[in-house]
Design a binder for these strands. Structure first.
Lengths: 185, 185
DNA sequence: CATGAACTGTGAAGCTGTAGACGGGTCAAG
DNA sequence: CTTGACCCGTCTACAGCTTCACAGTTCATG
């Protein structure tokens, strides 16, 4: 206030955004967020504009963008936000797949008996129980898989991974889904 | 070879396991995998035992364990593999949630129009179309959500996030699912 | 005016797991 | 003996901070 606008010191601004002081010092060092002014004693003086920029930075961080990308977007240095976010979105898809893969690996190693009552994953058994309770017969579920596989194979795969089904079994399910016929047994 | 058993140099062993030479050098430095012998010229000489240990390391890495944990497990320093893997499993669940959250944030910011035909996520519309095609009426889906919410609320939440539904909508769906009655409109 | 707490500044190092550069050794071909 | 293609070990860099060390400042209290 006081006519010249609000200013913040590092720690105050950091607290305002739930960051640590050193994080802001780091942002300063790499040029992502420089305080527009310094006090006579050399202390950093951030103004409302700086705070607004920091708000943007935090927002983009929430999407998981790295600081370099954020810098490019904010300074309009050839990077368009939409394009960067779209790229990040795809990256996230890949990462999620990887982590889920690790989860399934662990699961298939330990078997669910050792992960006592995890509640963390939806298992195939849980899912089919739910569907059966909703009136789905085995035949219905089969038809549903077939349709799913034909309509959106990628998403079918994702869904099966979501259920933490082992690779081989996923492969089998997709195979008979694609063929439209379940093998004997 | 020559009767004293097979030995490998760094690069050879690295290639054998699809790792880079520097990775093995790093493992040596942190004490995770020390070659049991050195040649006269100072070159690292890994034997079959070392290779076996490396195989274990790679296996654990596939589950996403960090090197410190792997070291503790292999050297039996108070860490039991099952317990560490279980911990890692939960960690993975949290991380996946976070990444998916980022994905949903991006999606809700950009709207699906900008992510042209991504195929990367299953949308609510895709899902309901599939269920309708399988003979589910709106009322059936409603009942299904109610059952899901009561039977496994955590997993219901996960599933809704899997469909990349915005937070507020998830909240609403869960609210009426829990209540067992859909509000007007 | 001295003391201390609580702030500020700078700089350097550490973390994880890996990639790459650098200079030097090894070995066969010419 | 030299050239070239490899190999080796060591050192440095990356992200995105955090932690540490050390010094100067501000302000309230005694």
């Amino acid at each position: 206030m006081e006519g010249l606008g609000t200013t913040y010191t590092v720690s105050v601004l950091a607290r305002k955004f739930g960051l640590s002081r050193t994080t802001l010092l780091y942002y300063d060092k790499i040029g992502l967020l420089r305080p527009s002014r310094r006090q006579e004693n050399g202390y950093r003086a951030y103004d409302a504009g700086d705070a607004a920029r920091l708000a943007q930075i935090c927002a983009y961080r929430r999407y998981g963008l790295n600081l370099a990308d954020i810098g490019r977007i904010l300074d309009h240095r050839g990077s368009d936000a939409k394009q960067v976010l779209a790229r990040r979105f795809e990256e996230l898809g890949v990462q999620i797949q990887e982590l889920r893969e690790q989860q399934r690996q662990i699961l298939s190693l330990m078997g669910s008996e050792h992960l006592e009552r995890t509640d963390l994953v939806m298992s195939k058994a849980d899912w089919t129980a739910l569907m059966r309770a909703a009136g789905f017969s085995d035949a219905d579920m089969f038809a549903w898989h077939v349709r799913f596989e034909h309509q959106a194979p990628e998403q079918h795969l994702k869904f099966l991974k979501f259920l933490c089904i082992p690779d081989e079994e996923i492969h089998q399910i997709r195979a008979w889904s694609a063929a439209g016929a379940k093998p004997d047994g």
